[in-house]
Amino acid sequence: MAKNWWKILGIGLLIYASSFTFLAPLDPGILGVENGQVEPGNAEVLVIGYNTHFDTESASMQTFMQSGDVRICGMIAEIVSPTRVKIAFDIPQNLPLSLADVYVNNDHDGTVYLPNALSISNLDKNAPIPSNCNITVNTNSFEGFGFPFLPTIFETIRNLIFHVPMWFTMFFIMIVSFSQSIVYLSKGKIINDIRAEQAVQVGLVFCVLGLVTGSIWARFTWGAWWLNDPQLNGAMATFLIYAAYMILRKSIPEENKRGRIAAVYNIFAFVMLVVLLMILPKFTESLHPGKGGTPAFSSYDLDSSLRAVFYPAVIGWIIVGYWMYKIRLRYVQLLRKVDYDE
């Protein structure tokens, strides 16, 4: 029992992380704005919220639109349902931009907003730009425990808890394999070669899981199962490289020779993995957060409640991956014992 504390820890972390993943709600946000094409004068738009409480919180509700640095207050015209509210704006003759963001605030949901929700036509560029409306604006944020509401990602953000730890785990397991290959080349003990091979096998499982979870996520956020994206191509190339490693091993019958050649290739493969998954995507345009111009995900969606789940999930998956590797290793060692009667 005392020896296996880390296994219990890993399972515990995974139970904690997955229960959060499936139970926690998404933070409130605005899905869209209907009748967003407006002209100067009175305009009524319908704001469609998500997980919001417009009806019960009508007393504390404030709303405004923001174009550039000018803030125009809106009037609550009609509250249709908890997630639907009609807002009337008095659009001025001129504004800094022809696009405006819509903000809605109440005590329960905090501030929810939709960037570029309104597009304003027929602005008179010669008219004076109005000043801010004078209300004190609440900018409190939602205080419950939930996933951050992000445009285009919405509910699929839960996949973050599965998809990203797969790659962390694969990378960890491949480091194990890489270091075992180095030890094999310097010491020449067959056990290190077995370890390297079993680690690659487990790493490949996580690689496939990462590809599958990523593909499903891509289908729901980017609209296709596979895209020509450097991170995706790098992941696929990594899979091919390590799959080739397994085939290379199978094609060499003699044990010592196999170990040496496979170790040399494995060291090569790991360097390529670092190039493919860490260096190249940083320098090319990518849809993934944090790569080539798209903002890093820590900057906008890893809020503190998500951190409290994401990191335990990473550690939990790494522990489970290591455990799988240990089981494979024991299995192969037992097989060898039976075969060679060692």
Binding site: P230, N233, A237, I241, A244, L248, M272, L276, L280
Partner: peptide
């Protein structure tokens, strides 16, 4: 071919 094609991908991309 089996070993070379995946390894050459980053070089070819650049």
């Amino acid at each position: 071919a089996l070993l070379g094609f995946p390894i050459i991908i980053p070089t070819m991309l650049i």
